[in-house]
């Protein structure tokens, strides 16, 4: 009467198993799409970038400025402007972002935090074209030109301040996450030793969240260097720029160089290697931000693992 159960009974309906395999294959293909995109980016950029670097006169890479339509491809001009603008942005955003993060995480009441954090996230969602417009029409005339009366309407200073506004909420939200991830027991231990709240924040919470905080700063730096619209609209220098360290001069970053070449009247046809130079600059930017992001991701993983 008793019937023994065999493995055939347990493996289930072959139709169900076939369907299972098909579904799995579909999901796998979707997973591979992301890899395909990164491969496409590298192929798309490096082909033309190689053509540029192999055909360009090496002397043209280190001249006095970036004027691709005249055959002058001074890469340092772009790098100096990129670092300068990102640096000004960080000078504004680091104290504001970290201060806001520490207050939200350590001092604000839970209710206030629930209201304020989404607002910060909305601030982080303001499109860069809006901040670019505002940097051009408000920051430049109302702040930069008032403080520095000699400043022109288009300056790297105005663009840098605009970039600072852009990355402040990014630093604030990511750092706040890192500070909140510090276990309460560490704070309690500090209070138990008689430390005040400010001492606890400075000597316990901050060091414990350091890797997350640093990750947020690197992420912000990468965003600042990759930001296009603010710089393109507020730093001026459409068509080209002279090499300068003066933030009160117009300047062109790597991103703005790509954007302005691409929106020129002849639409990335240009002369000589102008079209190829776009991809070389793009590849450079890709590699810089990629390395910054991987450092940041690694740091985030480290603090996630610790607590």
């Amino acid at each position: 009467m008793t019937q023994s159960i065999t493995t055939v009974d347990l493996t289930g309906d072959p139709r169900r198993r076939r369907k299972e395999r098909r579904v799995r294959a579909i999901f796998l293909a979707a997973g591979l799409a992301s890899i395909a995109i990164s491969a496409l980016i590298i192929v798309a950029l490096s082909g033309e970038a190689w053509r540029f670097i192999s055909q360009v006169d090496p002397a043209a890479l280190f001249t006095v400025g970036w004027f691709p339509r005249r055959g002058l491809y001074d890469i340092p001009t772009l790098i100096i402007a990129t670092v300068l603008i990102a640096g000004i942005g960080m000078l504004v955003a680091v104290p504001l972002g970290l201060g806001a993060a520490a207050y939200l995480s350590e001092y604000a009441s839970p209710r206030a935090r629930r209201r304020l954090k989404p607002t910060l996230e909305i601030l982080a969602g303001i499109p860069s074209v809006v901040l670019g417009f505002w940097a051009l029409t408000f920051i430049s005339p109302e702040i930069v030109q008032r403080v520095f009366t000699s400043a022109k309407p288009f300056t790297m200073m105005a663009a840098g301040l605009g970039v600072g506004v852009l990355i402040t909420p990014l630093i604030a939200t990511v750092s706040e996450d890192a500070m909140r991830a510090v276990p309460t027991s560490l704070r309690e231990a500090s209070y138990g030793l008689g430390a005040s709240r400010s001492t606890t924040v400075r000597s316990v919470v901050f060091p414990a969240s350091l890797s997350g905080v640093v990750a947020s700063l690197i992420l912000a730096l990468s965003r600042a260097m990759g930001e296009t619209m603010i710089v393109f609209m507020a730093a001026g220098a459409v068509g080209g720029a002279l090499r300068t360290f003066n933030p009160l001069e117009p300047g062109q970053t790597m991103t703005a160089a790509v954007a302005s070449l691409a929106t020129g009247s002849d639409q990335v046809a240009g002369e000589g290697l102008a079209f190829q130079s776009l991809f070389f600059v793009g590849l450079l930017l890709f590699l810089i931000t990629l390395s910054l992001n991987s450092i940041s991701n690694r740091l985030v993983r480290r603090y996630r693992n610790r607590y």
């Binding site: 950029l45 990759g226 930001e227 296009t228 991103t255 790509v258 954007a259 776009l278 991987s294 940041s296």
Partner: peptide, 12 residues
């Protein structure tokens, strides 16, 4: 890492 690539690179 792809999520952090500047948008202008996607334009290229």
């Amino acid at each position: 890492n792809l999520a952090g690539v500047p948008s202008i690179v996607y334009g290229l």
